[in-house]
């Protein structure tokens, strides 16, 4: 059942004249968690935002090279079609404050003007909230605005919102950096659980987190992909000196 979900080849990204990503090559397989790790400012967010083409929303941003989502050329697709197939969870929980919890979960369908019968929507909401391990906590207040939820719950609501679209890959950009330790471990557990059903690309600068949840790790430094391989291997015998220095806390 293993197959390549995301393939990045000779990929570079720019903000105006400054090159942020330099010739990245990467492959992620289905039902694995791949971590992008590296010091702050090295380009992790940029790379992940290139995958669903959010990068190009910023004026002056451009890219070269190729990315494929299950053999489909990402940069040959309509962004709005692509983004529906790719889920994204942001650094700061960002549920829509003007929508109820229920509507937040199906926001992707609502925004895209896709209509379903009511019971099917109920189904999607329940399934997605279950998937995000939030169902039990909110099932009685589905039609309230989500603003009363804790930060960790809000983040799981955002994960549910992404899961509702049945994404082929889920992008998580430091999803726990704005959360307390307890919520963080809840999200980490959730990621491990989700692995059964969805492929994930996780950005973190927390080495321990990468070790806990990921199967593969890519170490990025100054826009370059320094090393990429199975997490346990890289963490025990890093091939590159820079990876070793990063893992042992010499910088970052």
């Amino acid at each position: 059942m293993e197959s390549t979900v995301l393939k990045v080849s000779d990929f570079s990204a720019y903000f105006g004249d400054s090159q942020i990503l330099k010739n990245i090559n990467l492959e992620t397989d289905s039902n694995f968690v791949t971590t992008l790790m590296g010091p702050s400012g090295c380009g992790k967010t940029t790379l992940i935002r290139c995958v669903n083409r959010m990068h190009e929303l910023i004026p002056g941003a451009r890219v070269t090279g190729k990315m494929y989502l299950k053999n489909d050329d990402i940069y040959g697709m309509e962004p709005i079609v692509l983004r529906r197939k790719i889920g994204m969870v942001f650094q700061k929980p960002n549920p829509f404050p003007m929508m109820s919890i229920y509507d937040n979960v199906i926001a992707g369908y609502k925004l895209n003007g896709i209509r379903f019968p009511r019971d099917e929507l109920d189904n999607i909401v329940e399934r997605s909230l279950m998937g995000a391990a939030l169902w039990d906590e909110v099932k009685d207040s589905l039609h309230r605005k989500g603003t009363f939820l804790s930060g960790g719950q809000q983040q799981r609501l955002c994960i549910a919102r992404a899961l509702a679209m049945n994404p082929e890959i889920l992008l998580l950009d430091e999803p726990t950096s704005a959360l307390d330790p307890k919520s963080t471990s809840a999200i980490e557990e959730l990621i491990v659980e989700l692995k059964k059903s969805v492929t994930m690309l996780l950005v973190t600068h927390n080495i321990a987190q990468a070790a806990r949840v990921s199967d593969y790790t890519a170490f990025i430094y100054l826009g370059e992909l320094v090393e990429f391989g199975p997490t346990d291997k890289m963490f025990t015998v890093p091939k590159d000196k820079r990876t070793e220095e990063y893992l042992t806390g010499k910088f970052g």
């Binding site: 309509e78 709005i80 079609v81 895209n112 003007g113 896709i114």
Partner: peptide, 8 residues
């Protein structure tokens, strides 16, 4: 078609 309509 739906996508095209939305883009239009």
């Amino acid at each position: 078609d739906h996508t095209t309509a939305r883009m239009i």
